[in-house]
Design a protein around this nucleic acid. Structure first.
Lengths: 274, 274
DNA sequence: GGAACGCTGTATCTTATGTTACGTATTTTG
DNA sequence: CAAAATACGTAACATAAGATACAGCGTTCC
């Protein structure tokens, strides 16, 4: 079974004429980067002419060069998104637990790899400055995340509201929202139409939207000021929201720290209670 | 110091107009793949027009699109050659993100190290056999976890109830509970007195209790048939429920798999809907 | 040693990609 | 609230990319 293009090449490299073989070797040497460049660059790197490169990719079974490049990109995407599980605890390799845990850990690393301190700090600042109100809402499975975040934020600052219940209920809350307010939305795949509509309306009212979504980006990203894209793929019938959960916790921590640093009276009062 | 294009973007994303910010977010979401595609594909993915993409790369300081792509490719080449640096950029260890993430990942490894496959399988079986009803409840901060689990379990099997609202409300539900039923409780430090009382009463009625708690064990452990102890310590003002969250997801997956294996009609019906 | 075959490169063509100009919409500022 | 500035998209443009035709060369097989 041939899964990668690299395998495909080494499978057929024996049956290639000299020029194409040079192309193949050049590509393998720093795979897959050379293949992502233009035909001209590829040919220059291999020291052959452009048509030879084209004949080479044709021999691999691709209709044209762009198709070949797309295949390479897809492969690269798969590689980048599921980093080789090298953290695997050798002792617990057998059971049904490990794959799930491994995937979840990978998801978190990947999620945070795409997330800079600055991004998080910006969002935290926006949440901490509280010029207006903060609203949180989530989809069918992610609403608990919204609740979790709301439960914490509501303690350290006033005017934090979780939007619950039926659509009509939170739609009516739109009337309270303005450009000084922040709306935190959780929406992962099988994006909810009702949430998208809600986000759009809020956006039109000038509300700043912070979106927690998956890597395929909810349509709400269109309206969002900040987008956090978490990885959700795990070996299960369900998607995993764990990565988003951790981001949420991180943000809660960051907001708390900022408010502490700002010397908010509420925080001092809170500490005396703890 | 700015070394990668991703950093460059998150550094300037704040000073970008909406359209370009969407482009930036789309690129970051699955970095750097979108940037390697054509302008047309990039713009389609971001939901903006081609010129916006070009303005975006111009704002990053590139003369033209090909130059931008070359930079991405160079970066990718460097990354691919030293796979070690892909896990987590050691350079960014100074920020506020890493310690939090590191601690969370450690928590999960620790939590699962003390959790055997058999334990999880037993609990999953208990949840899947559904001789009776399943109730879920949580504390102030952990109630969202109960909701999250309930949202999933309620789909794959009937008679799943999340106990919400005021204490008096769920106390009255005790009357519905018997020895065939299961009660899943989430309770971490600053254990809630009301939850303990509730657990005790349920226990006396013969209800089997599955407890999610922290490593110091809620007093409810006294009455619990199964106890899952997750690590909660992170460098933050708050405890982290992330490890428990992942255990919950793992359990959800395990229960789903067991029901599938048992050929439950509900699951087949569900699959036809997906 | 000659002829046939196949591989390779040059030059040309076509396509679609990146680029730019301009009008409209939106936001910001006084 | 008005006016200026900025941002955005449509459409036309130029260019560079991939594809193709053809001729030269080397190789191989009678």
């Amino acid at each position: 079974m041939i899964s990668s293009i690299a395998e495909l090449i080494s499978d057929r490299i024996g049956a290639m004429p000299a020029g194409e073989r040079r192309a193949a070797q050049t590509l393998i040497a720093n795979y897959p980067l050379t293949g992502l460049k233009t035909v001209a660059e590829f040919s220059a790197a291999a020291g052959v002419s452009s048509p030879t490169i084209l004949r080479f990719v044709a021999r691999l079974g691709f209709q044209n060069y762009p198709e070949f490049q797309s295949a390479l990109q897809d492969e690269l995407a798969a590689q980048l998104q599921s980093p080789a599980s090298r953290t695997l605890d050798p002792g617990s390799a057998g059971g049904a637990v490990s794959p799930m845990l491994e995937a979840t850990l990978d998801n978190m690393r990947e999620t945070f790899r795409h997330l800079t301190d600055k991004q998080l700090a910006d969002i935290a600042t926006r949440l901490a400055e509280r010029r207006g109100k903060t609203f949180l809402i989530g989809g069918r499975f992610t609403d608990p995340l919204a609740r979790y975040m709301a439960a914490h934020l509501a303690i350290i600052q006033p005017d934090v509201y979780h939007l619950a219940g039926q659509e009509s209920i939170w739609r009516d809350r739109l009337i309270d929202m303005g450009k000084r307010d922040v709306l935190v939305i959780f929406d992962i795949r099988r994006y909810q139409e009702s949430l998208v509509r809600f986000a759009e309306k809020a956006h039109h009212r000038g509300v700043q939207i912070i979106l927690f979504t998956d890597q395929w980006l909810s349509p709400i990203a269109r309206f969002a000021r900040h987008v956090i894209a978490g990885r959700t793929a795990v070996p299960s019938a369900w998607d995993s929201s764990a990565a988003l959960f951790v981001v949420a916790e991180t943000l809660i921590g960051a907001v708390t720290r900022q408010l502490e640093a700002a010397g908010a009276k509420r925080i001092r009062d809170l500490e005396s209670l703890r």
